[in-house]
Design a protein around this nucleic acid. Structure first.
Lengths: 115, 115
DNA sequence: TTAATATATATGAATATTCATATATATTGC
DNA sequence: GCAATATATATGAATATTCATATATATTAA
């Protein structure tokens, strides 16, 4: 993936916020991101699909939910850019994190290894 | 500037290459970037104007040439992203740097302070 | 006047959004 | 176990919007 292709993935508000939230929370499902961003389900789902197709995210289904996480194969410099952006833009994400915390009935995580 | 606005600036091949070349060379004029990227003058000029308008670059005119450099007011994390991208993508820029070096009659720099 | 750079406009291409619907899993009542 | 239903997510199709490019023209300095 070229640098500009990587940056294009980050160049949309929905994708940027989803990626940074996932980078911080390790793993989030579609409904959690809908709550955090207050956006429609198809909108979230489409952007996540795009990020997965580009190789930035990977998904796993757990029952009715699909959880997304940053791909473990992502080149180190891209991870570093994500982390640097996250660390330096705490205020940018604050509203989203507040909404996420305020969300009731968040799906429980079950470790893939010992479900 | 929000993170996604910053990344949008980097999300185009022409702008990405120009920015990384300038980050590496400290200062480049339009005709040098035309040579390095082998692109038309209006195309280069337009993208540089956009980067300047967004606050990523600043320009100085020296005689007939206009030199662009990374804005000294750019937030540290953005500079860090630029530098990290540059360092980790040497091969991506190699063709451009070769063409730049091969360019004859490159305009001389005159220091602003002691011209 | 010539060289270097900037800008305006028109057009086409890429991208995002919405709505409706499809699929996959879970739950409830029989 | 088997329907009927609910919930979570994905996707096709239509539309709207944004973005990049090319051409032509303007500006600025030597």
């Amino acid at each position: 993936m070229t640098p500009e292709q990587f940056f294009k993935c980050l160049a949309d508000e929905t994708r940027c916020r989803c990626l940074l939230l996932i980078q911080q929370e390790l793993e989030l499902c579609v409904c959690e991101l809908m709550a955090a961003l207050d956006e429609s389900q198809p909108k979230i789902s489409r952007h996540l699909a795009q990020l997965r197709k580009c190789g930035l995210l990977e998904d796993r289904r757990q029952g009715q939910w699909v959880f997304y996480r940053v791909s473990p194969e992502l080149p180190a410099w891209m991870v570093s850019v994500l982390q640097q952006t996250l660390t330096s833009n705490a205020d940018y994400l604050q509203t989203n994190l507040t909404r996420l915390q305020a969300m009731g009935d968040r799906p429980e995580r079950v470790n893939a290894c010992c479900a």
